[in-house]
């Protein structure tokens, strides 16, 4: 792997930025160069949110992603907005519990994960974002599932340590999903 540009998008409140932070910390703990750039401002308050994460073996140039290698979408407007920006040969991860459209492109690898449904079923209804991340890790062997708990611990404040277990549950569900 040289450089992977990851765009995560959805509604504000779905944990889009948190998911991006998870990937950024995962990269950091694996000694990669990383950048994390959030959308900020009005769109964060209930509208669409997106987050640019770059993982690289080299220093990161521009942190702004125009042509992602990996697109992770958790609502329909985001899929429609970004589907054609993904580079040929790239990956698209779709929360198919919320997005019922199929991707028409044939030059990308598409993964449909009913993440919101899976999160509800697993009793971690707010963690569909981490179900998605679990499935991303599954398809990115360079990010290994190993060390995931250490990553989550970096993200969860000590006072809310019980959330580590819930996040792991969501991540494992995403990893084990056979689409």
């Amino acid at each position: 792997m040289k450089t992977t540009q990851i765009l995560i998008a959805g509604f504000g409140g779905q944990g889009i930025l948190f998911a991006g932070k998870f990937l950024a910390y995962k990269g950091l703990l694996e000694d990669l160069q990383v950048s994390w750039l959030p959308s900020y401002g009005p769109e964060m308050r209930g509208g669409t949110a997106n987050c640019n994460v770059i993982l690289s073996e080299n220093p990161v140039g521009s942190p702004i992603i125009t042509d992602p290698d990996v697109l992770i979408v958790m609502n329909l407007p985001s899929l429609q907005k970004y589907v054609n920006t993904v580079v040929p040969g790239g990956q698209i991860y779709v929360d198919s519990a919320l997005i019922h459209e199929k991707v028409e492109r044939t030059d990308v690898q598409v993964y449909y994960i009913p993440a919101t449904q899976m999160a509800n079923d697993a009793g971690v209804s707010t963690l569909a974002n981490m179900v998605m991340m679990g499935h991303v890790l599954k398809n990115h062997p360079e990010l290994t599932f190993e060390g995931t708990e250490a990553t989550v611990q970096k993200l969860v404040p000590p006072a809310k340590a019980q959330l580590v277990e819930l996040n792991m549950k969501a991540l494992q569900a995403g990893r084990d999903y056979e689409g």
């Binding site: 932070k21 950024a24 950091l28 160069q33 990383v34 950048s35 994390w36 750039l37 959030p38 900020y40 990161v60 942190p63 702004i64």
Partner: peptide
């Protein structure tokens, strides 16, 4: 600027 202010890097 807003980008460098808002972005995270190691």
């Amino acid at each position: 600027d807003g980008t460098i202010g808002q972005m995270m890097e190691p």
